[in-house]
Design a protein around this nucleic acid. Structure first.
Length: 290
DNA sequence: CACTTGACCTGTCCGC
DNA sequence: TGCGGACAGGTCAAGT
């Protein structure tokens, strides 16, 4: 679930909450959620103070004063929810998706020196949290392969074109989802930006005109920015650092709107399968190009 | 190579 | 109501 805007929202939330807090206890009840917990926890995590929280692609980075960092991937159903002395969740029935914590999806709990907790919940257990020396992180294969940040200042339409052409024989949707081409785009924002640019998701990259790529660039940045402004998309699991839902889906044009009418032309939105993923399009606005 | 499929998991929804 | 199967926003490895 969490794509760039969701992870950015969590990152901004945690950046307000975590720095200055010191880890006093760690609990992990699902080994794959924190594979190196066993080994590194006592020596490198307990006693460490959080100094910074950031994001790269769909991954969160929590830097500690020990020169180690936690890197966290939420995959499909991960949540990182902070709870201080009083619960934030119970008092916000409309905004909060999570109640009392820990709950049955809680995989890892970090406890801080003021008794506050960071809960890593993950229903499907695909997500993970790992501890590495901060200086080594950007040398990890995972980060070395990652494409540029679409919202960074030097990401231009020309750069998008250049990156897309690395896979010119593939469908544009498959390429947008490829994290080594551009970091952070997932199924929701791929569908939304392709609708915005009136591009059929099966269109091969090599068949996209320069004008279409420019349009895609504008639309992609716009949907990512709008979603960040709305706190991301909550379909079912995603919540921010306080356990609250994001509202972008209320603004989505095609995603999860099959059977409803296209806001641009009124045609009925359909759901198809592209690159093995559920894909939402307006069949009239997004004509297939071979 | 480049693309597709299966696997990792749990929960929900839909049809019989 | 119960049960089986398909499907869910991500990513890798393995297969074609």
């Amino acid at each position: 679930m969490p794509e760039l805007p969701e992870v950015e929202t969590v990152s901004r939330g945690l950046a307000e909450l975590l720095p200055g807090r010191r880890v006093v206890a760690v609990r992990s009840d699902w080994q794959k959620s924190f594979p190196n917990a066993e080994h590194d926890v006592s020596s490198f995590l307990i006693g460490a103070k959080v100094v910074n929280v950031s994001r790269r692609g769909k991954v969160l980075l929590i830097d500690l004063d020990t020169d180690y960092s936690l890197i966290i991937h939420l995959k499909m159903t991960g949540q990182l929810v902070f709870r201080g002395e009083q619960n934030f969740g119970a008092g916000h029935p409309n905004k909060s998706l999570v109640g009392q914590l820990p709950d049955k999806s809680t995989r890892v709990v970090l406890t801080f020196d003021d008794d506050s907790n960071l809960f890593f919940n993950d229903q499907r257990k695909f997500g993970w949290m790992r501890l590495f020396p901060t200086s080594e992180i950007m040398n990890l294969d995972f980060f070395k392969k990652l494409g540029p940040e679409p919202l960074s200042n030097d990401f231009t339409a020309v750069k998008l074109q250049e990156r897309l052409m690395r896979r010119s024989g593939s469908s544009i949707k498959a390429v947008l989802l490829d994290q080594s081409v551009i970091a952070g785009v997932g199924n929701i924002y791929a569908d939304e930006s392709l609708w915005g640019a009136k591009i059929h998701p099966k269109t091969l990259v090599r068949n996209l005109s320069k004008k279409k790529v420019e349009s895609l660039y504008v639309e992609l940045l716009a949907v990512l920015r709008l979603s960040i402004a709305k706190g991301g998309s909550t379909d079912r699991n995603y919540v921010d650092a306080l356990g609250k839902k994001g509202s972008y889906l209320a603004f989505a044009k095609v995603f999860r709107r099959e059977g409803l009418s296209c806001p641009r032309c009124g045609s009925i939105i359909i759901k198809i399968r592209v690159a093995g993923r559920g894909t939402h399009i307006c069949p009239k606005c997004q004509k297939e190009i071979l």
